[in-house]
Design a protein around this nucleic acid. Structure first.
Lengths: 240, 240
DNA sequence: CGAGACATTGAGTAGGTTCAAAGACCGTGG
DNA sequence: CCACGGTCTTTGAACCTACTCAATGTCTCG
């Protein structure tokens, strides 16, 4: 019986969302129900996941890859309002209807839930709802941190902040986070232009700040999209 | 019996929070319980409500007045990350601990709940939790709208956006919101300096943009802190 | 290898900041 | 009631950071 459940759980058993995300809030039999309304979808870099005016027909969690959440002004000016990494969620709930665009920045795998089904599960499983609330509160906190960046930081501080944020969120290398700073390497999948839209700058300025940080020895850049941070603390200081 | 309850409900019966805020999610007997842990507090303009590093010992809802929620950089640069008007909430839940400062911008009356008691009520009354989730989602949406403003809008658009936001949120005059634009008057309680910290500008720039908008006829300014918007649509266009 | 997309660097410009001075408002006290 | 002081606001002039426009360089993929 247990084996049967385990096999039916299948890919859920080894999924990040189960380990660290929303699904972590579910008991095995709840997960089984939840799984029934879920289906995975893959997206190629640059592909649109949600358009502003779509009837947003699904809610989703990121399994792998990076999703840009952007807002657009009437004349085309863009602002990336969030970068979604694995475990993060995307989609509007409870009839909210602000206009976001979601776009795959890398190859992306999502676990998608039809809209109504997801809301129903939220009602049925209080722990799921609680987890969702916690994630939303975290999102709010980081949105506000970003407001400080956009409103008050210099170009160099912004770029440093982004690198720092990515370094702490996607620590690829053996980062034991022993308090002190240890070199961290990271792949930056975003184009300069996308970075600029996230930081409220132009891509030329982003470039210049990268070279500035390189010259100061705060980062190294083995290849165009690969960075390493020799001293996290120093970078944090440069980030404000 | 009903009369007894009603009298015990006292000021809750006529409170905004009950009508339009969190408490609207409660049944009468639940409200009675909730009320027991609540107490009202008043603050004078400029008074600190929460400091970053306080043990934040209460959660609160705004009954009247305006509260600034700000974040501060190491060297004193400030960013207002939210303006709390009546019905809005303030305070960290579930052990979150980002550093905000909350300051009364006007005379403020809050309904305060001790921290742990509030969390307990959230668990006990699912509708309350649901309402709280909805408010948090709304906060997230508006934080992201503000990110667009801070990252991509010009000084004039920012000022116009603020006025528009306040005009729609605190429609004082007989605004029947009949779709078309009707003149709206509003009291702007914030100092130029505070506005600047909300818009990511300096107060001098805010001043200049006010006069620019005045010259374009988009706003009138009978007194220093009183504004009126003759044509909301036009202002919206100027706000992007 | 060549074409296209992306990144880097340079030079000139502009929107917003900084520094500075003058003007308006408000409460207090003579 | 008016004068006074402090705070807040407005306006001006110089400056600077980041933007714009433009050219060159580099990666990638057919």
């Amino acid at each position: 019986m247990d084996a049967e459940i385990a096999s039916e759980l299948g890919r859920c058993a080894s999924c990040v969302i189960r380990r660290e995300g929303l699904c972590g809030a579910l008991k095995q039999d709840e997960l089984l129900q939840f799984r029934r309304i879920a289906n995975r979808r893959k997206f190629e870099p640059g592909e649109n996941i949600l358009q502003s005016d779509d009837d947003p027909d699904f809610f989703a969690a990121v399994i792998s890859g990076v999703v840009k959440l952007t807002k657009v002004l009437f004349d085309g000016r863009q602002q990336v309002v969030d970068l979604l990494l694995p475990v993060d969620c995307l989609g509007q709930v409870f009839g909210r209807r602000s206009s976001y665009y979601a776009q795959a920045a890398t190859q992306v795998e999502l676990c998608c839930f039809p809209y109504s089904g997801f809301e129903q599960m939220l009602e049925e499983f209080p722990d799921l709802k609680h987890r969702f609330l916690e994630q939303t509160l975290d999102d709010l906190d980081s949105a506000r941190d970003w407001m400080v960046l956009l409103g008050r930081k210099t170009a160099e501080e912004r770029v440093a902040s982004l690198l720092l944020m990515l370094a702490t969120r996607t620590a690829i290398t053996g980062t034991a986070h022993n308090g002190s700073s240890r070199p961290v390497a990271l792949d930056l999948h975003l184009k300069r232009h996308e970075i600029a839209d996230f930081l409220g700058l132009t891509y030329e300025t982003v470039c210049r700040q990268f070279t500035a940080l390189k010259n100061k020895g705060l980062i190294q850049q083995p290849s165009r999209r690969r960075f390493s941070v020799p001293d996290t603390e120093a970078l944090a200081k440069a980030a404000g």
